[in-house]
Amino acid sequence: MTPAQRSAELAANLAEVHARIGLAAAAAGRAPDDVTLVAVTKTWPASDVRLLAALGVTDVAENRDQEARPKHEECADLGVRWHFVGQLQRNKARSVAAYADVVESVDRPELVTALDRAAGEHGRVLEVLVQVGLADVPDGSPPAHRGGADPREVLALADVVAGCSSLRLGGVMAVAPLGPDGSPVDPRPAFARLAALAAEVRAAHPSATVVSAGMSGDLEEAVAAGATHVRVGTAVLGGRAGLR
């Protein structure tokens, strides 16, 4: 596929996703501009990031440092905002803090401390979202593969972030839970819970207005629940690059 053909494919996909966002926003009595599309570019080459930027995409997301770091270096001139959305280990905090504009997957105090220290060393202020675990499991903690802080601890974790000198609390993020067999379930109850937690965080920290929720398969439900950012990969870029 030539760059021109790929650009045309991406443009068509973006038009469809923006149309879905517009319809969902209208149904919820919201303006489409209230919802930011974050294109999830994991497994796709830096050339696609360049094409997306040329098509007006302002925010891209990655979930693995070893892929995100070199891709950012290749695309540093584009002026897009880089979101890190994967589960993050403390030993990767310094690397991620060097290039990410937003870390959406903060779910424990020790990671907050590591990111604050790393951002300070790089002379940067990093936006952080508290990831909320929304899965219902017997002990009240989210499955490790989905990540997220216990909902009962979200406000306290937000307070910790807000007290850091090199971090800025942006709001909250969540991934809709899966069923026991790994299949999708109705995301609306989980997104409603996220909306309630987001309101609690905003009441304590009025500038924390971001609600990042919704992906290719459930962005309509997320927008209906008040998402300000939707993270869309497949519907924009297609199936994973290695699987095409």
Rank of each mutant, 00 (worst) to 15 (best):
V201I: 12
P184Y: 03
Q89M: 12
V160I: 14
A97L: 03
V161H: 12
D139S: 11
R124Q: 02
L126C: 09
A158Q: 07
S165A: 15
G86F: 01
A162S: 08
A135K: 14
A158C: 08
A176Q: 04
G171M: 13
P151S: 02
L115S: 05
V137Y: 09
A156R: 15
A176P: 02
V130W: 09
E73H: 11
L178H: 10
P109C: 06
V185A: 10
A192P: 00
A97D: 00
A149W: 03
K92F: 01
G86D: 01
E110M: 13
A149I: 07
G133V: 05
A162P: 03
L169A: 13
L78Y: 06
S183M: 03
S141E: 12
D107M: 12
P138K: 14
P151C: 01
D139F: 09
L197P: 05
P142L: 02
A199F: 04
V185E: 07
A156T: 05
A176Y: 04
L129F: 02
H83Y: 11
V172Y: 08
V125T: 13
L111S: 11
V185R: 15
E104A: 13
L155Q: 04
A98R: 11
V161S: 04
P138L: 08
L129N: 01
V102N: 05
G133T: 07
G120H: 13
L134N: 11
A196G: 03
P187S: 06
V175H: 13
V160T: 15
W82H: 08
A97T: 02
G182S: 03
L157M: 14
H83R: 14
A199K: 15
D77V: 08
L129I: 00
L111R: 14
G179Q: 11
Q131F: 09
L129P: 01
D101M: 10
L167Q: 01
V172H: 10
R168Q: 12
V96Q: 09
R81L: 08
E121G: 06
V201N: 09
R146C: 00
A196Q: 12
G171C: 13
G147C: 07
V128E: 03
G123V: 06
R152A: 14
G86S: 11
V185S: 10
A162Y: 02
P189S: 10
F84P: 10
C164H: 02
P189Q: 10
S141P: 01
A135F: 09
L197E: 00
A98D: 00
D77K: 15
A98F: 00
D136L: 15
Q131V: 05
R124W: 03
A198K: 14
V106N: 08
V154W: 11
D136T: 15
E200Y: 07
L178R: 14
G163Q: 05
D107C: 09
L115H: 07
A76I: 01
Q131M: 08
V161W: 10
A176I: 01
L155M: 06
H122G: 08
R188C: 02
H72L: 06
R168L: 12
V80G: 06
H145E: 05
R117C: 01
L155I: 02
V106M: 11
E74P: 08
Y99N: 05
A199Y: 04
A93L: 04
E73M: 09
D107G: 12
P189M: 08
A198H: 13
L111T: 10
L155V: 13
Q87A: 11
P143N: 08
P109M: 08
H122N: 11
E74K: 15
G79W: 06
V175T: 09
